[in-house]
Design a protein around this nucleic acid. Structure first.
Lengths: 247, 247
DNA sequence: TGTACATCAGTGAACGCGCGTTCACTGATGTAC
DNA sequence: TGTACATCAGTGAACGCGCGTTCACTGATGTAC
């Protein structure tokens, strides 16, 4: 009786979700290491040992939250990018960056959970790597699109590429340190096929800049300089778009 | 009897240092939130309540460690920069960036303590802001030196500034979003007198990039792309030197 | 220089807390014949 | 369709742990006259 079987299964799925929701709520209120199974159970009106039917240990609950956080951030970036016309590559880049920032500001503890200091004694298992890569994959796609758009423009107009606010865009033949060229090739193969290594290398810089800036804002490091950070963030996003050569 | 008075005082200062050293050791071994007064006391062969003669609470001990960490990192950057001839501005920038990274890799938990997610329930008091600004102050000095060197060269050579690998250096008149221009002016006044706002704005980008990249390396976010990160790091440091217009 | 007093460092016991995890159990929900 | 059995969810008590902090105390070190 599949319908009946899935009745129990559905109850199970629902409670699993409720546990995660409550855990997420506590995460938001207290931070990652204050997350306690007992408190979650208490809030749900269960006895703490009951949670062990759903998560074999506290670390497994944490892992589930981490995966959810990566997925939520990734989905938010993907959604934002999909909302901009495909040809407007710079607009998609802006959308991606702002989606990252907005999600981080809206979910500071979840952001800290995945991009802050690693939780001590906790080692991220394999299942996190897929979700963890979603934003990078989006960025890789934009780099690839940006490169091919620019390559097409160069062919057509004899070098009159889009004006850059912040400097010359990367060129395919630019020299790179050897180790980096190899790493960039691997990255390109994975998320930005056909994109030359120098573009990827700059993309890595922009990627680290984006998250560095976001973390700094969230963790209070911009107080006294670029806080509030709205203007700085937008400026940096555009500067980095130029830097990686987006049209 | 000042000498005798300072005998007791010296004993006190020494034990205070020993407590911090032991706490730092535990920090390195276990991470910030595993730091426990009882464990520190145990290791020192004291009873836990004795620590309250030295630190009024666990948070105060944490604060002391945070200040020490900022100072250690700041001193390390200052030392590295001072070891390079004053005129070699790019060399000093490189030294500064690599000092930050090297210190972070050598003291990962202390780095996480100050640049990772904020410790929950802990609010950094005033005394941290001075030490926290030391690296930024170093960078501000380099931006100022870079700008005045470039301004001098422009005057002398009619615009033939140093060749940039990565694009055109910032110009004084470049447009900035309004809020950012004001913030940049404040920053300039504090740590880079006479430096135009666009240079400062790019400096902020480079600053966030430096720490973003370092945090990503330390927190394992570069695994699968730019790990090991030596080549990428050096490349990014040079790219950012161009980006902020260092000669 | 010697004595009476004040200051301070360190002790040891105790308070009250919350945590993760285990285990034998009860009762309800599902399955097989 | 009805019964006997298996599976699973949730209970409640318990284990053992370590933590931060307080408090009254002892004894040593310093200070004032």
């Amino acid at each position: 009786m599949t319908a009946a079987a899935s009745a129990r299964d559905r109850a199970r799925a629902e409670l699993t979700r409720e546990i995660k929701d409550e855990a997420r709520r506590q995460l938001a209120a207290e931070g990652p290491q204050r997350l306690s199974l007992r408190a979650v159970a208490r809030e749900l009106g269960m006895v703490s040992s009951a949670l062990y039917r759903y998560f074999p240990s506290r670390d497994d609950l944490l892992t589930a939250l981490i995966i959810d956080a990566y997925n939520a951030l990734g989905a938010s970036a993907e959604r934002a990018v999909a909302g901009v016309p495909r040809a407007d590559i710079r607009g998609r880049w802006r959308a991606c960056c702002h989606a990252v920032r907005d999600w981080a500001l809206a979910n500071p503890h979840e952001y800290a959970l995945i991009y802050g200091s690693p939780v001590p004694g906790y080692r991220a298992p394999r299942e996190t790597v897929g979700p963890a890569g979603r934003v990078a994959t989006v960025i890789g796609g934009l780099l690839a699109d940006g490169w091919s758009a620019r390559a097409a423009a160069l062919d057509g107009s004899g070098g009159k590429a889009a004006a850059a606010v912040v400097g010359q865009p990367p060129r395919a033949g630019e020299p790179l340190p050897e180790g980096l060229a190899a790493q960039a090739a691997v990255v390109a193969a994975a998320i930005a096929p056909g994109t030359p290594a120098p573009v990827i290398a700059r993309g890595l810089i922009a990627w680290t800049q984006l998250f560095g800036m976001t973390s700094f804002e969230l963790f209070g490091q911009l107080v006294g300089s670029a806080d509030p950070a709205d203007a700085f963030f937008s400026y940096a996003v555009d500067a980095m778009a130029d830097f990686v050569g987006l049209p």
